[in-house]
């Protein structure tokens, strides 16, 4: 089994404060991997490092065996890594359909073309329709993204993330702020769209984590204190003390 993402001694400092303190992590291709940890542990920062939003202070990140540290977000995206955001980050003024079509254009090779007519791009339009169907927003096709409900916007966020066909998907708290039923819908959606792909997600809802993840890493104060299958994490003393705390009782 080859490795999709590998972190080697990844360190991030903001000024004198070390937020990520030498993280080593390897996620094999096809695995669903969850990163959990208390608030301020550096989970979102870790995502921002992997996706190129922030530069590394030390260490290296490999995507499919190839170093991507120092690359810009769009360069990393073109190598097959896509991410969602904790705070919904979509094209608010565009329709649902346009949002998703924007996310498929690069991968389908249309790049900066000003000689193709969008309406005539059968592959892009067809693919966008399929993604819309799979995230359950077909009925909202022409609605501006900004007026969708919160749960719909979160679904669109996932749609925009996966539409380009990236092999490695990073989801940052995909179910945050959702009701019970919305959460279980979201879990089914994530399960479906991450089929056969490598998924790394940050999540606070333990139900979601233990339901979806093949493996869990626990991040505390910028360090991975445990990385194992869900059952072992549940039984891990250090994790219980550091993170699960009262919830484990």
């Amino acid at each position: 089994m080859s490795t999709a993402i590998e972190l080697r001694g990844v360190t991030k400092r903001f000024g004198n404060t070390e937020i990520i303190r030498g993280v080593d992590l390897a996620v094999p291709r096809g695995e669903r991997h969850a990163i959990i940890g208390p608030n301020g542990a550096g989970k979102s920062t870790l995502f921002n490092l992997i996706s190129g939003r922030y530069p590394l202070s030390h260490g290296d990140i490999l995507l499919n065996g190839e170093s991507v540290s120092g690359l810009k977000p769009f360069q990393i995206n073109r190598k097959g890594l896509s991410r969602s955001f904790q705070v919904t980050n979509i094209f608010q003024r565009m329709s649902v359909f346009e949002n998703i079509r924007c996310a498929v254009l690069w991968t389908l090779g249309y790049k900066y073309s000003f000689w193709h007519r969008l309406g005539g791009l059968k592959d892009a339009n067809l693919h966008a329709e399929e993604v819309m169907e799979s995230i359950g927003l077909k009925a909202r096709r022409d609605t501006p993204a900004g007026v969708l409900s919160y749960a719909e916007q979160r679904a669109l966020e996932i749609g925009v993330t996966i539409a380009g066909g990236a092999e490695v998907i990073l989801l940052d708290e995909p179910t945050a702020g959702m009701s019970r039923t919305e959460t279980s819908d979201a879990v089914e959606l994530i399960r479906k769209v991450s089929q056969g792909k490598t998924l790394i997600m940050v999540e606070h809802d333990m139900g979601v984590v233990f339901d979806l993840a093949d493996k869990i890493s626990v991040l505390v104060y910028g360090e991975v204190i445990a990385s194992d299958v869900p059952d072992n994490i549940r039984g891990n003393k250090a994790v219980q003390e550091a993170y699960l705390g009262t919830e484990a009782h």
């Binding site: 810009k72 896509s82 980050n89 094209f91 346009e98 790049k111 000003f114 969008l118 539409a163 380009g164």
Partner: peptide
């Protein structure tokens, strides 16, 4: 031009440059 990939991505970059970068566009 407004109906081409570049024209649409110009709108995308106008509205949300960060997201545009994360769908592969410089």
């Amino acid at each position: 031009w407004t109906q081409t990939p570049l024209g649409r991505m110009a709108n995308a970059v106008r509205d949300n440059p960060e997201r545009a970068e994360f769908v592969g566009y410089d």
